[in-house]
Design a protein around this nucleic acid. Structure first.
Length: 427
RNA sequence: GUGGCCGUAGCUCAGCAGGCGAGAGCGCCGGGUUGUGAUCCCGGAGGCCGGGGGUUCGAAACCCCUCGGUCACCCCA
């Protein structure tokens, strides 16, 4: 452990090194493939935006009010590191006005200033999609199906899909007031924190885990009984579609999620293999008013984000290792000439690599024993050694490091020999 | 922002009712006559005992502060 804190990663952020990074690559590749099949294109937005972009997420949300990395640049612009993915994408939509429907996916980091703990970091990565310009419940179903299919691709089984409808903003006012007054009647025993939350946004009380608040929450009216006819029909269509696709779900009227922009469909994927503190492995919903709030035309939208760190936690918990990717080379080239013919080594190694065979080699004139040891350690399948005798015969020695068998091969046939051997091994 | 636990070699940790010149395992490097790995044997490198202050004749051990890690709360991915 380095003793100088200045040369350690800042609190709450972390490096991803090989071989762990191989799992990341596997996860991202699978997501990209599935997103492509569903007709999504990759989007990349800046890491930071004018802070107003994120204010549209909801000024009363924790993410915006107390967790943003905000700063002023040298031009005195008030900026913030992206705390969540949707706002930037909607900003890009409003700015460029692509032809709807607009379907994009991303793999990008988010930044939140909060105390790190298991499954929660100051920089975390999300895989996600957004669709702008469709309010058809069919797209809600597709987006959820995309996520569910991705989890299935990874081999996750212990997942639970929770869905809810937040209703329309217009029709929601009456419900929010009913909820507020209900909660305030039980507020005398629950303290000032509870009252503050209710005053700011009573919806946000609903998914609290505070045990003292549970009785008040459980007796609270549910929005599902207050949906407008339109919102209700939309929700029914979504449920019917999920059923038709065989995607299991539970309806939970208390699922409101952390951002103020949600309308109608909201959903969350929870891993039952993880503790409640970090079991949300993905979530999202509809945000039909967000584009307009950023000065664009009224445009419905829906999307989700999947936390990659959480996802890997779930993969670990379920002991799913299908995404791990060994990066051991196929061949390790050994110098039996004590460094006297570096150019020969160079060309043999290069020839293997150019033929598409992953190849590692020894550097710096180490002893033969050390080189063979290195070949073994790195997991190579074959050791290829060139010594004095081989140079005279234009050959190389090839040793199968698993079986210990060894054979001499003409140098100009080395690539073909390795290829054939691999074909045999894979049959 | 609040609270619990924890910081000794690259990794996992032992050591501590304060006292011989800081240890083990694994890993790494080298050697066992520079033509052979995974076993075995021998040797070696590598630690401001997280940092600062204090108590003491004496601190890796005790006290305070600080930084960091970890877990939880709030909330989220």
């Amino acid at each position: 452990m380095s003793s100088d804190p200045a040369f350690r990663a800042p609190i709450g952020v972390h490096d991803v090194l090989p071989p762990e990074s191989g799992r990341w690559a596997g996860v991202v590749t699978r997501f990209a493939r599935r997103a492509g099949i569903f007709g999504f294109g990759l989007i990349q937005t800046p890491l930071f935006e004018h802070i107003e972009v994120f204010h549209r997420v909801g000024e009363h949300t924790d993410v915006v009010s107390k967790e943003m990395y905000e700063f002023r640049d040298k031009g005195d612009r008030h900026l913030a590191l992206r705390p969540e993915g949707t706002a930037s994408v909607v900003r890009a939509y409003v700015q460029h006005r692509p032809l709807p429907p607009w379907k994009v996916w991303y793999f990008a980091p988010n930044f939140r200033y909060e105390r790190p703990q298991k499954g929660r970091y100051r920089q975390h990565w999300q895989l996600g999609v957004e669709v702008l310009g469709l309010d058809d419940p069919a797209i809600d179903i597709e987006v959820i199906a995309l996520a569910a299919g991705f989890y299935r691709d990874l081999g996750l089984r212990d997942l639970r899909l929770i869905i809810n409808s937040m209703g329309d903003p217009e029709g929601r006012g009456a419900y929010v007031e009913a909820l507020r007054s209900h909660l305030l009647t039980s507020s005398n025993e629950l303290g000032p924190e509870f009252v503050e939350r209710v005053e700011a946004n009573p919806l946000r009380v609903l998914d609290s885990r505070n045990p003292e608040w549970q009785s008040a929450i459980e007796s609270a009216p549910l929005i599902s009984n207050h949906l407008s006819p339109d919102a209700s029909a939309h929700f029914e269509a979504v449920k019917a579609g999920l059923n038709a696709l065989g995607i299991e779900f539970e309806v939970d009227g208390r699922l409101v999620r952390g951002f103020d922009y949600y309308t109608r469909t909201t959903f969350e994927f929870q891993s039952t293999a993880l503790d409640a503190a970090q079991n949300a492995v993905g979530g999202g919903g509809r945000y039909d008013g967000l584009a307009e709030a950023m000065g664009g035309p009224p445009t419905p939208g829906i999307g989700f984000g999947i936390g990659v760190e959480r996802l890997l936690l779930a993969l670990d918990a379920e002991e799913v290792i299908s995404t791990s990717k060994g990066n051991a080379p196929s061949v390790f080239v050994i110098d039996g000439l004590s460094g006297t013919d570096e150019l020969l080594l160079l060309t043999v190694t290069s020839g293997l690599r150019e033929a598409g065979i992953s190849t590692e080699r020894a550097y710096g004139g180490r002893s033969l024993k050390a080189q063979w040891k290195a070949a073994d350690r790195c997991g190579a399948r074959y050791g290829v050694m060139i010594g004095k005798a081989e140079v005279e015969r234009d050959s190389v020695v090839v040793k199968d490091l698993e079986t210990g068998e060894q054979i001499e091969v003409r140098r100009d046939q080395l690539v073909a020999w390795i290829r054939e051997s691999f074909e045999e091994n894979y049959q």
